[in-house]
């Protein structure tokens, strides 16, 4: 481990002043302002209309009307709350975001690691492949939404077209053996409340270029002599992966886990551009709900600030828990 050089207290100011100014003015100030605003009601139009409301925003967010019975058609998680929540959209957005994070993060990590392993081979032309694999990340700008509209289009989209071929093949083969199969109705993906989450998880998977790069860098930095030594001991490929590769890249896994988790919880771009297609608020994610509360009419900046602070606390706890458990499985080189 390296240690830092001692220095006079003034020297570092010269180096750190950009960050100090930036963080205090552009980060801490807004964050503190949002904390203060979370105890007020404000429509964002006139500074004079800010009113102190105490903890009313927070109480309103969590309030549950337990006098009314939860019906059979209501969301199942209302039963856990023991009544009908006052802000049903809040719970809906928490539910949606949780489902998304639970599936998207592990799948994303696995996909990124898989791609990185694939690209970590000394082959000719590998750099061209790396560029192709990274392209989605670069492309995730203007036209992406149109692109996904087409891919997930139930009717002419490539995904359903592919599924259709599979189904036709299946019907044909089972027809050979005299089985009758019922007609297949293609999934409506983004347009249906059931299909939109898998679709969004897939979309998220496609933008894994950043995590892939970090894994790739970690893989490239595994000392080759470790593998050579294992080779001498007669280890097979699986053993090498489990006993050398995984421990060696575990810090990268930890980093991607935290980044992926906080990214999933805060994901905004995809639900924002897709909001007009989603049915039944199926893609109402947490940050989208915050954004709508703050900017769409009726604009409630105070309420949105309270939502943001709830998110902060959750994110902080999640990260702290991940870091605490990481001591068990993250391997640090000791020199």
């Amino acid at each position: 481990m390296s240690t830092a050089q001692t220095t006079s207290t003034g020297t570092f100011l010269k180096f750190l002043s950009p960050w100090l100014v930036g963080t205090s003015v552009l980060v801490l100030l807004p964050v503190i302002a949002s904390l203060v605003l979370s105890f007020t009601s404000w429509d964002g139009l006139s500074i004079h209309d800010i009113h102190w409301v105490g903890s009313a925003n927070y109480r309103q967010i969590f309030e549950v009307d337990s006098s009314r019975e939860v019906g059979p058609n209501d969301p199942w998680y209302w039963r856990l709350l023991g009544g009908i929540p006052k802000d049903a959209q809040f719970y809906k957005s928490v539910y949606n975001t949780t489902i998304f994070a639970v599936f998207a993060v592990p799948l994303g990590l696995a996909a990124a690691l898989g791609l990185a392993l694939l690209l970590n081979q000394p082959l000719r032309g590998i750099s061209a492949f790396r560029t192709i694999y990274y392209l989605p990340y670069i492309l995730s700008g203007v036209g992406t939404i149109l692109l996904w509209q087409w891919l997930f289009n139930p009717d002419v989209g490539l995904i359903n077209l592919f599924l259709k071929y599979l189904v036709t093949l299946w019907t044909w083969t089972s027809g050979l053996f005299g089985h009758q199969t019922s007609p297949w109705s293609p999934p409506a993906w983004l347009y249906s409340p059931q299909g939109c989450k898998p679709a969004v998880i897939l979309m998220n998977l496609w933008g894994m270029g950043g995590a892939m790069l970090i894994f790739l860098a970690a893989l490239q930095n595994v000392p080759p002599h470790l593998y050579a030594a294992a080779q001498l001991d007669g280890a097979n490929r699986r053993q090498k992966f489990r006993c050398i590769t995984l421990p060696q890249i575990s810090p990268a896994i930890l980093f991607n886990l935290i980044a992926g988790l906080s990214g999933a919880v805060r994901s905004f771009k995809i639900p924002y551009v897709l909001q007009h297609w989603s049915q039944n608020d199926g893609l109402l994610f947490y940050m989208l709900y915050v954004y709508r509360s703050a900017f769409e009419s009726p604009a409630r900046i105070g309420y949105a600030s309270a939502l943001i602070w709830i998110l902060f606390v959750v994110l902080f706890v999640l990260t702290a828990l991940t870091l605490l458990t990481s001591r068990r499985w993250v391997h640090y080189e000791v020199r």
């Binding site: 560029t131 970090i214 970690a218 490239q220």
Partner: peptide
């Protein structure tokens, strides 16, 4: 830009201390 520089990225994105 990515294509031309990607061999550096592999060494630049190292998160662990050595």
């Amino acid at each position: 830009l990515f294509f031309l520089t990607q061999r550096y990225l592999m060494r630049g994105l190292v998160l662990t201390e050595k």
